[in-house]
Write a protein that binds this DNA or RNA. Structure first.
Lengths: 214, 214
DNA sequence: CGGATTCTTGATCACACTCAAGGAGCGTGG
DNA sequence: CCACGCTCCTTGAGTGTGATCAAGAATCCG
């Protein structure tokens, strides 16, 4: 998006750096800007009154946080790692959308992608078993990689297992146990911390989609 | 939306009637139209390979199914009761959006509302207990009513308990048991079939938000 | 190096699911 | 209009799975 905004005459944006655990937004804040991830990872969350937390999404390079006409922030947003964001005044984005068909199609595209992901996420939360959810989560990470994925490859998991649990509607212990099971089965292997190697993409896919394998 | 579309010069829409259990869309179909509910209730669903079903949403009078630039249907859509829908060619809607700022704001408004609901739904699926999910669901129904809700009022529940369960990520039996419990507690009362009376809005709200009461 | 956080694993428990059976409600056709 | 069959609802009993509780190991970070 960055290039598209810059190309417009009224270009005016700033940069914001967040340290790990830095807060970008509180749930319900007035939303003055729309943010584009330049580096790092940010999570959006909702919290219940008694402290239970739900992670709605993880955002990495190129992802957008905030939508035109979202006057109040829908979720809180917190840095999972140190992160850099490009900040566009929301009014400016709204103007661009109204004036440039190309730009508004770009926004609609983003919305479409988000809708698709949220529905997938909802299916996982409502109807998938823990192993299936974790497998789906691991596979989703590959979408963030450049195309053409071989059977074996590495993915980065910058977030904690607690964050993954809060994203998948599980406990941290269950996530850990499922990952251990996948390791024992040879589906994945821990490399560095915050990185795992996928050893059998097909096994994970079978597990994610119906849990055919046990 | 209907009035706004008609006001435009290129107005051209048709009406579609669905019988109960009639299929409007199959997941992945080419989406040629955008639909506005005129009467009845429709549910959108996703199905896993082994038959597990997730209900993504219920749609009543005035709700929109399908979005501009959603080339393939994101979900299946099926009538829960006999239903009537207004059908707008998706191309026409896309044109209107590009040309009329007013119209595209209308669309963005719909999208914002959907985003808000989906996030709420995700929190329920991932972090709420069965009683809290059912209470949230019952309260959501009041949004469909004209404003100013008193402590006691009636809501229509045209869908089956199985549908509610598939919407809340529970089993049909659990939904039934929670509803029975609410009846015993005096929170609600069954009136006609497919209609219940809310007797204590505040008790339901307390249950929905944190489950403070047991 | 020391303290905090995160991860891992085990043991136990509770809650929602599964299985089951009976009843109520509804639509259809005789 | 009633009888029949189907779907949907209700409730109970028993089970299994993921949550909880707990403790130790590993990793991170100042």
């Amino acid at each position: 998006m960055e290039a598209d905004v810059r190309r417009s005459s009224t270009f005016k944006s700033s940069v914001r750096n967040l340290k790990k655990h830095g807060i970008l937004l509180h749930d319900g804040d007035d939303l003055t800007h729309i943010y584009e991830m330049a580096s790092g990872t940010v999570k959006t969350t909702k919290m219940l009154a008694d402290g239970r937390q739900m992670v709605i999404g993880f955002y990495g390079r190129g992802d957008i946080i905030g939508m035109p006409y979202e006057t109040k922030a829908l979720c809180s947003a917190e840095a999972v790692t140190d992160a850099t964001l490009l900040c566009y005044p929301i009014k400016q984005i709204e103007d661009l959308m109204e004036r440039s068909a190309k730009f508004y199609r770009l926004m609609l595209q983003l919305i479409t992608k988000e809708r698709y992901e949220r529905v997938d996420h909802m299916v996982a939360l409502g109807r998938k078993k823990p192993t299936e959810r974790v497998a789906s989560f691991l596979l989703k990470q590959k979408d963030t990689l450049p195309s053409e994925i071989p059977e074996t490859y590495s993915v980065n998991l910058p977030m904690s297992q607690t964050d993954i649990a809060d994203y998948l509607g599980l406990t941290q212990e269950t996530v850990c146990r499922v990952l251990s099971q996948f390791k024992r089965q040879g589906f994945i292997k821990a490399t560095h911390s915050h990185e795992i190697k996928i050893h059998s993409l097909t096994s994970l896919q079978a597990t994610a989609d119906v849990g055919l394998l046990h």
